[in-house]
């Protein structure tokens, strides 16, 4: 069973995000890290491959400046190899272009299953995975919160607005998983050491036959209206009274 996992490498989210004042693209300088959201997909791929008795887990990623530190983290968890597409021409690429790039990268290796996260932490369009599935002409199950594989059929609990659907799907297929589907492992010391020598193929967009176009633009950026900050008090044992008074003022009670 060969599984390909999309892994996005993003700026560390503990520092606040910034837009480039000229291009309005998200600033992506400095070290990138593995998007937490994708660590679930990596873990799930490793588990499914192990249950299926082997096969390769391949990573695909699109990132600027030949960035591989996030990929190395996923390789250290246990993935076998990676394809990275890195090209200055792809700066500010929209989700559709990203999906075209990733689909072309995925096709470089045989796969039975493609795994992505439901949405990335910094882009959160939540459309890239299903766009990839449409390009590859395979079925997709998004918002997967539980995944099993039996007899070559995926059995997925898919979150819906009202509960969940039990979905069955033959391979090859794509799933996008939610956080919490599995518990991502920490890379072991041995994993970290061996990750350094695992193969990472680095490609440009043109090698994949992709010429990024521009179909959308950012017109303006402005600050949102601030909510005026209210009263903050420290509980001295009677905070519940203050809440009651506030609710009374609002005529909620």
């Amino acid at each position: 069973m060969n599984i390909t996992v999309c892994v996005k490498q993003i700026p560390d989210q503990s520092s606040p995000g910034k837009l480039d004042p000229g291009s309005h693209n998200l600033v992506r300088d400095g070290k990138l890290i593995l998007d937490d959201s994708d660590s679930y997909g990596v873990e799930m791929a490793l588990q499914l491959a192990a249950e299926a008795g082997g096969g390769e887990v391949t990573l695909v990623s699109m990132a600027p400046n030949g960035e591989v530190s996030g990929i190395r983290t996923a390789l250290a968890m246990g993935a076998d190899k990676a394809v990275l597409v890195s090209d200055a021409k792809l700066a500010g690429a929209d989700a559709l272009t990203t999906a075209k790039v990733l689909a072309a990268a995925i096709k470089r290796n045989p796969f039975d299953l493609v795994i992505a996260a439901t949405e990335s932490t910094d882009g959160y369009t939540g459309t890239v995975p299903v766009q990839i599935a449409e390009i590859l002409d395979i079925p997709s199950v998004s918002f997967a919160k539980k995944v099993e594989l039996s007899g070559g059929i995926l059995k997925v609990q898919r979150q819906t607005e009202l509960g969940y659907d039990q979905v069955e799907c033959p391979l090859p297929a794509l799933i996008s998983v939610t956080a919490g589907v599995v518990e991502p492992r920490y890379p072991s010391f041995k994993g970290i050491m061996s990750a350094k020598s695992k193969p990472v193929e680095v490609l440009e967009a043109s090698t994949l036959g992709i010429e990024p176009g521009r179909n959308q633009e950012i017109i303006t950026v402005r600050s949102a209206e601030e909510r005026s900050s209210g009263v903050i008090i420290t509980d001295e044992g009677d905070a519940h009274q203050q809440i009651i008074e506030f609710l009374e003022q609002l005529k909620v009670i």
């Binding site: 989700a95 369009t125 299903v130 449409e134 997709s140 998004s142």
Partner: peptide, 17 residues
């Protein structure tokens, strides 16, 4: 999102989300 994503590829038009 599923529908918009599939349609976007069919039409080769991006989605503003």
């Amino acid at each position: 999102r599923d529908c918009a994503a599939r349609l976007s590829v069919k039409l080769d038009v991006p989605v503003l989300t």
